[in-house]
């Protein structure tokens, strides 16, 4: 596990700089240098007055396998939403009305988010889980 800073919450009080034994918290980018961070040390997490630091896991447990009927249904739904997203995209590209373009752009974004949620609940939640890794390998990624 390594520490990571939520830059939107960090108030630059710098307590994490005082407590870190390795200097991992002191970087140019503002993000913590995970390569210098000691596995699970968490001194900076507890010291931060802004609750801006959290530990990122590098190993996640394998998720419970999904019921295949539900997973298939969620994937079918995902595909349907994706076709709708592409429809909204085409409308946003071709409409002569600015208002319609804007509405279609909003629908496009919204439909992708709903489609992604279906994919997630079809078993593609964790990028490092076996199912996702197999899928990626099949795509040549």
């Amino acid at each position: 596990m390594y520490a990571s800073r939520n830059l939107a919450k960090c108030t630059k009080d710098c307590l994490c700089l005082f407590v870190c034994p390795t200097g991992a918290t002191d970087t140019e980018t503002g993000q913590i240098d995970s390569s210098k961070c000691l596995d699970g040390c968490r001194l900076c997490v507890d010291a931060c007055p802004s609750h801006a630091i959290f530990l990122v896991m590098d190993n996640y447990p394998e998720p419970e396998p999904k019921n295949s009927e539900v997973a298939d249904k969620m994937l079918n739904f995902c595909a349907a939403k994706y076709g709708q997203e592409k429809s909204a995209e085409a409308i946003a590209d071709s409409s002569a009305s600015e208002a319609e373009k804007k509405l279609a752009a909003a629908l496009k974004q919204s439909l992708r988010i709903v489609a992604e949620d279906c994919a997630r609940e079809a078993g593609y939640m964790l990028p490092q889980c076996e199912k996702a890794q197999e899928f990626k390998a099949e795509l040549g990624g």
């Binding site: 939403k81 992708r112 992604e116 990028p127």
Partner: peptide
């Protein structure tokens, strides 16, 4: 292999999840 018109969505969802884990490479 999953049906073709789910692939980009599955991938963009996993990309977002990897971002949340602070894993820019993945």
């Amino acid at each position: 292999m999953e049906q073709k018109d789910t692939i980009p969505v599955i991938c963009s969802n996993l990309a977002k999840a990897a971002e949340k884990q602070q894993n820019p490479g993945m």
